[in-house]
Computed example of a mutant assay.
Amino acid sequence: MSLAQLQNLKGRAALVTGGSRGLGLQMAEVLGELGAKVAITARKGDELDAAAGHLKSLGVEALPLVCDMGNLAAIPPMIEQVIAAFGAIDILVNNAGTSWGAPTIEHTLEGWNKVITLNVTAIFVASQEVGRRCMLPRRRGKVINIASIQGLTGGYPEGVPTLAYNTSKGAVVNLTRTLANEWAPFGINVNAIAPGYFPTKMTAQLDTDATSEMAPMKRGGGPEDLKGVTALFASDACAFITGQTLAVDGGVTAI
């Protein structure tokens, strides 16, 4: 089978959480380009509608769904809406996330719980629901979790203390390994992407030039830099790859 055939997603349904902008929208674009129908979630309806309009302008069948992934009770009904519109979900991209910058001794419990709930628990709930309803019964599926190089190294970019964020992304790495091991006999691939510095709303407070200089490639991630790994992990090209976390960071973790 050719690589083009392996990466053909025509007829498949994808769900990208946090898909209205930044990395989520970039991944939604490539899934649609490869032929998938794409549902995207976000908290803000205006941003979501703009993203869906953008995807539709590219010829992508897009379904915008307002959903606060930090509200765990809202996740199953949202997934029901995707299934009602597209049928069983073939590809789940757990991208929605948040951060909280504060020295550990000043870090509030509210902030800790907010980060852990959205960055870890929401992934568990979404994966459990999609797995139970769509992937395990059909013995196939692709799950892509968005980790971070801060979950691999424990470092802080530019000295910004982000204990809860780093902890949550480390948990995503091991959640990915463990779920991959459990679901491998069902033909389900579970992998993670660990982005380095990408200019997004979440990273807007960082010194762009200084942060980019951390990478051997001397730049931050661009609007195309997650598309290749997303195409790999979402398609049959990764049939023998599971439980892996791939850093997309311009070489930061190679130093």
Score class of each variant (00 low, 15 high):
Met1Tyr: 10
Lys10Trp: 03
Lys10Tyr: 04
Gly11Trp: 06
Arg12Val: 06
Ser20Phe: 01
Gly24Phe: 00
Leu31Ile: 10
Ala36His: 06
Ala36Lys: 05
Lys37Ile: 07
Val38Tyr: 02
Thr41Gln: 00
Ala42Gln: 03
Arg43Trp: 04
Arg43Gln: 12
Lys44Gln: 13
Gly45Val: 09
Gly45Pro: 00
Leu48Glu: 03
Asp49Phe: 01
Ala50Asn: 11
Gly53Cys: 05
Lys56Trp: 01
Lys56Gly: 08
Ser57Pro: 08
Gly59His: 00
Ala62Val: 06
Cys67Met: 11
Leu72Thr: 05
Ala74Ile: 02
Gln81Trp: 09
Ile83Thr: 14
Ala88Asp: 15
Ile89Ser: 03
Asp90Tyr: 00
Ile91Ser: 05
Leu92Cys: 10
Leu92Val: 11
Asn95Lys: 02
Thr98Tyr: 00
Trp100Gln: 13
Thr104Asn: 14
Thr108Phe: 02
Glu110Val: 02
Gly111Tyr: 05
Lys114Ile: 10
Val115Gln: 03
Thr121Glu: 09
Ile123Gly: 03
Phe124Val: 13
Ala126Gln: 02
Gly131Gln: 07
Gly131Met: 07
Met135Cys: 14
Pro137Met: 10
Arg139Leu: 09
Ile144Pro: 05
Ile146Arg: 02
Thr153Asp: 06
Thr153Ser: 11
Gly155Trp: 12
Tyr156Glu: 15
Pro157Val: 09
Pro157Phe: 12
Val160Ile: 15
Thr162Glu: 14
Leu163Ser: 15
Ala164Asp: 13
Asn166Asp: 14
Thr167Ile: 08
Thr167Cys: 13
Ala171Arg: 05
Asn174Phe: 00
Asn174Lys: 04
Thr178His: 01
Asn181Leu: 13
Asn181Met: 08
Asn181Cys: 12
Glu182Ala: 07
Ala184Arg: 07
Gly187Gln: 10
Ile193Pro: 00
Ala204Thr: 12
Thr208Ala: 13
Asp209Lys: 06
Asp209Met: 04
Ala210Gly: 10
Ala215Cys: 09
Ala215Asp: 14
Pro216His: 02
Lys218Asn: 13
Gly222Ile: 07
Leu226His: 09
Leu226Asp: 09
Val229Pro: 04
Thr230Ala: 06
Thr230Met: 09
Ala234Phe: 08
Cys238His: 07
Thr242Pro: 04
Gly250Tyr: 01
Gly250Asp: 05
Ala254Val: 11
